[in-house]
Write a protein that binds this DNA or RNA. Structure first.
Length: 575
RNA sequence: GCCCUCGUAGCUUAAUUGGAUAAAGCAGGGCCCUUCUAAGGCCAAGAGUGUAGGUUCGAGUCCUGCCGAGGGCACCA
């Protein structure tokens, strides 16, 4: 990778300068290389000179010039120019030949372009989606599902062994509540919708009659003890819900390796509890068993309720134990809402206290929550928006646009239907991915159904446009034939962007940020569309120029496709 | 009350985790299909980053106070 080579060059130059006594002895600081925002500052730039200047108390620009001088007498075929500028940056300009070479690499590696083997031998478990049984699949769970899946794809692309686990909320007092409700209101047969209504009704009643909560806890306790009717009702709820979830997953094209769920760990709760007592991490408090953190670093966390029933901490601890043993992961990513920050902190800290995690890193991708303009969605109060409803609306709106669009006229009925589906769903997904995960999203029908500008349809459209051009050109792009070494501004802008893709993928993984990939690809698509509007491709003369422009088109299409793949959005040939 | 996030154009967000002139999209205004997909492109207008200080060669990014929004704080998950 070019970035690494530049880094090595700089390091070498500094060492040589130290040897020549032009620079005093010091430990070479971490060399940060970035892409300058302004094109006039080159393709890469570093601030080492300024960092060193601080270290040795000298003028930054002088140090920069010194390093620059050393660099310039070095050997660097891939660069066109190196410069040292105020206040002390060193800028690197890539040569045209290295930019063209990247196109050849893209055409050669195709769907593998951007992938790498840096994760080889490493395992990551990604805990995502994790809807609660007996509740409908709300818009809130979409974030975890979509972002989690994108992270899964990204890590896999980088050579990691990935294990996706859908940690279903299929155990807990909520079932006690349902069992009470089902008994009380004599339900025999029910759907997920009705279960949701029951849940809401229960909470409404419980406000007037607090005894219901107690009853629910008793029922959950019964369930944990294995009482027959409780067990039967629970099972039924789980089955109905799973069926419903499968429908949703299928619709949005999500496949999760495992769906073990909280109930899977039932047999392990006792052992976990015993271990915490033995290691003197947990103690009795007001009849319950809680973990007290040293120096009150964190608030105490409950392991067992006063009636002896488990809590979600018990279940999460058991889950960690199981995962560590079964998969020996290097990293576990929890793609879970920000409202669980404290809980997961408590969990990670408990794991630390138990001494389980010797070599495993834990990370909580605490995504912001969907909110209404007035507040939070609440299942308890029945204030939710169902995902299916959102998807249906999105597909419907897409249909309307297809009917009105120019390109839509040439499509068959089946094609239109297919496109409406992938574009509509893509738009909803992209809405979750393009902004940083930590931000709350205010639910707004207009925004989530946005089909232009920075959106999935824009990218999909650009891809379809490339495909259309390539098809009409009736010419295979052959990497060897690309010999053009002078570019116009728009061509160069594309070339100066496209090679960043492999770097972006790595960064997205490091920072758990799918939005970086979205930023990158939107930028690239914009640059391509500008180029497309200004320059003729198929009619370009001479022949080499035509081939060159077609190659750019093929490369942009390839990178668009690879990116959309990573974020789980389909790339249509036509739209 | 305590703890944790977040405050950037009218709206929704970027900003390579301390770098160079804060970047886009949407909405609104003007323009571009006798050329390959106009779900596209161009131009103009629009903020100095909630607020007051501080650290730094350099702050949207770090520190402190204040204001505002959201989340969490033992028997929901």
């Amino acid at each position: 990778m070019i970035r690494e080579e530049i880094k090595k060059l700089i390091e070498k130059s500094i060492k040589e300068l130290q040897k020549d006594k032009k620079l005093p002895k010091f430990d070479i600081p971490e060399i940060k290389i970035e892409h300058p925002e302004e094109k006039v500052h080159g393709d890469y730039s570093t601030n080492v000179a300024m960092v060193i200047a601080k270290l040795v108390r000298k003028n930054p620009i002088e140090i920069a010039k010194l390093i620059n001088w050393k660099l310039e007498i070095g050997n660097w075929k891939f660069l066109n120019k190196i410069e040292a500028v105020e206040p002390g940056f060193i800028n690197f300009f890539l040569s045209n030949s290295v930019l063209t070479k990247e196109l050849k690499i893209i055409l050669k590696e195709k769907e593998k372009y951007g992938s790498s083997k840096v994760g080889k031998g490493k395992t990551v478990i990604i805990d995502y989606s994790s809807p609660n049984i007996a509740k409908p699949f709300g818009i809130g769970h979409l974030r975890s599902t979509i972002i989690g899946q994108a992270l899964y794809n990204i890590y896999k692309f980088l050579g990691w062994k990935c294990i996706g686990d859908n940690h279903l909320g299929d155990w807990g007092t909520q079932f006690g509540k349902l069992i009470v409700a089902i008994k009380k209101w004599r339900m025999k047969d029910f759907s997920v919708r009705e279960l949701e209504n029951l849940y809401v009704k229960f909470h409404k009643e419980a406000e007037k009659n607090p005894k219901l909560e107690e009853e629910a806890r008793r029922e959950f306790k019964n369930l944990e003890k294995g009482e027959k009717t409780a067990r039967k009702t629970w099972k039924k709820c789980v089955e109905i819900s799973l069926k419903e979830f499968d429908k949703v997953y299928k619709l949005i094209g999500i496949k999760i390796d495992y769906a073990l769920g909280e109930s899977f760990y039932q047999g392990m709760f006792e052992a976990v509890v015993q271990e915490t007592i033995k290691k003197e991490i947990a103690l009795k408090s007001q009849g319950a068993l809680v973990i007290k953190y040293p120096k009150d670093k964190l608030p105490p966390a409950m392991l067992l309720k006063s009636d002896g029933a488990t809590t979600y901490l018990t279940r999460d601890l058991a889950t960690v134990k199981y995962r560590l043993k079964k998969w020996k992961p290097d990293l576990i990513i929890y793609e879970v809402g920000a409202d669980q920050k404290l809980h997961l902190k408590q969990l990670f800290e408990a794991v630390e206290l138990l001494g389980w995690a010797k070599r495993t890193e834990f990370f909580h991708v605490a995504h912001g929550l969907y909110r209404t303009k007035t507040g939070k969605f609440s299942t308890r109060k029945g204030k939710t928006i169902h995902l299916e409803e959102v998807l249906k609306e999105a597909i419907e709106k897409t249909r309307e646009i297809i009917e009105k669009s120019e390109t839509g006229q040439e499509l068959s009925k089946e094609e239109k239907e297919k496109i409406a589906k992938i574009v509509g769903i893509g738009a909803v997904k992209y809405n979750d991915l393009f902004q940083h995960y930590s931000k709350d999203i205010i639910f707004d029908w207009d925004k989530i159904l946005n089909l232009k500008g920075n959106s999935a349809p824009y990218l999909q459209y650009t891809f379809a446009r490339c495909q259309s051009v390539l098809k009409k050109a009736k010419l295979e792009t052959e990497p060897e034939k690309v010999e053009v070494l002078t570019f116009n501004k728009e061509e160069k802008d594309i070339l100066r962007e496209i090679y960043k893709f492999p770097e972006i993928v790595k960064e997205a993984a490091d920072r758990f940020s799918s939005n970086l990939i979205c930023n990158f690809i939107f930028d690239l698509a914009q640059k391509y569309n500008l180029f497309y509007n200004l320059h003729s491709i198929i009619k370009a003369q001479p022949a080499e120029l035509k081939i060159f422009r077609l190659t750019i088109t093929a490369c942009v299409a390839q990178v668009l496709k690879n990116t959309l793949n990573l974020i789980g959005i389909s790339a249509p040939e036509k739209m």
